[in-house]
Design a protein around this nucleic acid. Structure first.
Length: 427
DNA sequence: AAATTTTCCAACCGCTGTCTT
DNA sequence: CAAGACAGCGGTTGGAAAATT
């Protein structure tokens, strides 16, 4: 019996060796790269440049396939590649971006300089996904488990998660381990329409890499493309239509295009004056424009917004007016904190005339974070505004909480390791 | 200390889109 | 326009290292 078992193990080991350590049928080496191979590859690319991967191995004296060489170079050997030790900021970004982009690792990687898609993917699978699960969050939908029946429904046919709700993630405290069950969000889902819209915009703002991702300006260029071309009579459209604004050079067209290409480089390289060029490159696939059956809330007391998972407008033209800062009603007529904040955002963003201005604004916190009022050791998540007023809000501090409600996130509180539970829904 | 299991990530594979001929 | 080459992407896997029994 033991003998048979021993033979069996030996056989398995032999098969494994043959697959992984020894040369394959095509005489190509597989498995871990040696230092010598790395050196050969680096030397060759330094001399001849990247590209021509198929013929590269032979020229470089490597018994590897071209794909393997390319992967090795791009993910590990290429200068500037940052490896290991993700910062809390990077982890936060990955979660936010994953909420917005789904498993589009390459797209996510473009927002994290020096990180490769492969490493981000691994980090997500090995760490972040588990962290979310432990917190009771569905890593696919980024919503609490149990609140999203048919979680996969949030993914479209391209396997792209269209939910954009990122969530706050608190750095794991190494000193205070487990024993505590995963903390479930204590706040109820916000029913504020304004808050939901604000969420969407805040998400975009916090991940802005370039002026072209200005969500408010994009709304302007969204108008002629939405509602199947009918912008004045939203109610005629009985189905929710997904609006995607396409890259100027992209072939994607129409309402159902789900993935907009990364456009940062294009805009930075080609657009000097945003005012003279239509801003039409923002992927708004998560923002669904459709008629609403009831006015659940107001944005600037004008725009009806549904409370479904998607932002919906009953009156796009009014919405645009508000978002462009041309609303007839002043901000103080807003019905809620989030409305006021939204107005502030709209006014500010609409006033920006260049990417530089946007950066300046972000850098100088034109809308400064004010002192948070209230007892944060008591407040975990609340359905109120936590004592914040609109003028206290720094847009960069906005982010989703775990239930998809708008919150205010003060990074400096995390950094200082103060009470981390300072999530505030916006009513 | 040894055996076993789990974790994590480097690398591979298959597929798709784009470019070139 | 078709076919092949190529680059890039995302899912999966093998196995070394770490953790646990």
């Amino acid at each position: 019996m033991l003998l048979i078992l021993s033979h069996k193990i030996t056989l398995i080991c032999f098969i494994r060796m043959e697959r992984t350590l020894l040369d394959s049928e095509d005489n190509l080496k597989r498995g871990t790269w040696t230092a010598e191979e790395d050196q050969n590859l680096i030397a060759y690319i330094q001399k001849h440049g990247e590209g021509g991967w198929r013929s590269l191995p032979e020229k470089a004296g490597l018994r590897r396939c071209g794909k393997s060489c390319r992967l090795r170079w791009l993910n590990y050997l290429r200068p500037g590649v940052k490896r290991g030790d993700f910062t809390s900021e990077e982890a936060q970004s990955i979660i936010e971006l994953h909420a917005a982009l789904g498993n589009r690792w390459a797209a996510i990687a473009r927002h994290l300089p020096k990180r490769t898609d492969n490493e981000i993917k691994n980090y997500w699978n090995a760490h972040l996904k588990k962290r979310l699960v432990n917190m009771g969050i569905d890593p696919v939908t980024h919503k609490p488990v149990g609140t999203t029946p048919g979680a996969s429904s949030s993914e479209n046919s391209n396997n792209t998660v269209v939910n954009t709700d990122p969530m706050i993630i608190h750095e794991e405290n190494a000193t205070s381990k487990e024993s505590e069950p995963p903390q479930q969000p204590t706040s109820s889902r916000s029913t504020s329409a304004s808050a939901l819209l604000l969420n969407k915009l805040a998400t975009r703002v916090t991940t802005l890499q370039c002026f072209d991702l200005d969500p408010l300006r994009a709304f302007s260029s969204l108008q002629p493309m939405s509602f199947n071309g009918n912008t004045s009579n939203a109610s005629a459209d009985s189905e929710s239509s997904t609006a995607t604004i396409c890259h100027p050079t992209s072939s994607c067209q129409g309402n159902n295009a789900s993935i907009a290409p990364d456009t940062s480089d294009y805009w930075l390289d080609n657009i000097s004056d945003p005012l003279t060029t239509p801003l039409n490159c923002l992927d708004l696939s998560n923002i669904v424009l459709s008629p609403v059956s009831a006015d659940h809330g107001n944005v600037g007391d004008d725009v009806g917004v549904s409370v479904d998972a998607n932002i919906e407008y009953s009156d796009l033209s009014n919405a645009l007016s508000i978002l462009e800062g041309n609303a007839s009603e002043p901000a103080n007529s807003c019905s809620s904190t989030s409305s006021r904040v939204l107005d502030d955002m709209a006014s500010k963003l609409a006033s920006l005339r260049s990417f530089d201005e946007l950066q300046d604004w972000q850098n100088t916190n034109t809308i400064p974070p004010g002192p948070i009022q209230g007892d944060h050791s008591v407040i975990t998540t609340t359905t109120g505004d936590g004592g914040l007023s609109a003028c206290d809000i720094n847009i960069e501090d906005m982010i989703f909480d775990t239930v998809g409600s708008a919150v205010f996130y003060k990074p400096n509180y995390l950094e200082n390791e103060l009470e981390p539970s300072y999530l505030f829904d916006i009513p």
